[in-house]
Design a protein around this nucleic acid. Sequence first.
DNA 1: CCGCATCCGCGATGATACTG
DNA 2: CAGTATCATCGCGGATGCGG
Lengths: 140, 140
Amino acid sequence: MVTIAAPRLIDRLRSQRTQAPEGDLFDPDCPTRLVLDRIGDKWTALVVLLLSDGPMRFSELRGQLGRIAPKVLTQTLRRMERDGLLTREVFAEVPPRVQYTLTDLGHSLSGPLAAIGDWAEANVGRITAAQTAYDAVPGN
Amino acid sequence: MVTIAAPRLIDRLRSQRTQAPEGDLFDPDCPTRLVLDRIGDKWTALVVLLLSDGPMRFSELRGQLGRIAPKVLTQTLRRMERDGLLTREVFAEVPPRVQYTLTDLGHSLSGPLAAIGDWAEANVGRITAAQTAYDAVPGN
DNA sequence: CCGCATCCGCGATGATACTG
DNA sequence: CAGTATCATCGCGGATGCGG
């Protein structure tokens, strides 16, 4: 029933790659790997999805994420700012307010990420089922 | 110029969630988080993309991935097998041969993953540029 | 050829407490 | 409110060597 196939990446892989256009995921030395690392860290993907709806401030993000240490959230946001995924605006008010806004680059990532997220939410059941089935076999 | 938005996930987040249909990414206790962890680990995504083109054996994967320790590849493949993403077939030949094949579940993941991969390859330049720009500012 | 066993470093994550 | 500082942990990922 499932007939999705991965197109461009694999094609480029099969053909002898002489010069990657921009980046090559399968080149161990290509910084493209860094992108996957970022996406894969525990919070970046969630932050992108949250901010895709509009700017948020620190506490809002913290509340939505739940159980994230302030230090970790700061680290995540700083790294994302460095990567150009979001911008940070500090308002000299009392009480202080800091607003985080997704850049165009960040917005362009939210689409693919949402697809992954939807897939995850749709298929958790199958995965956990597969896990228990696997664990039920004595050999494993 | 970029106008992509993340749809369903956020909608579900905004509306008071009484009962998630299957899983809820923003619930800290939902195993959906595990999915992101898997995707985010260093090799799973690449393995899915490689296998989306057809079955491969251990050594082939190892060669394409480049610089992966056998132990780590084994761990990755076992975990993916447990999660129901691929199947493992051992052929009693000399020399022995072990073939890894993507399941339907695994194939259904390759689409979204390829999108992420394409995004990564297309935007590495912007990211690294943003990084050097960020690092050039004395304050950071 | 496949991959298991052992040892290990290190970065990511977290809990807690404190400050402008 | 929005962080910073400090300490502790934990498991990924890697190196190396051996076995079926």
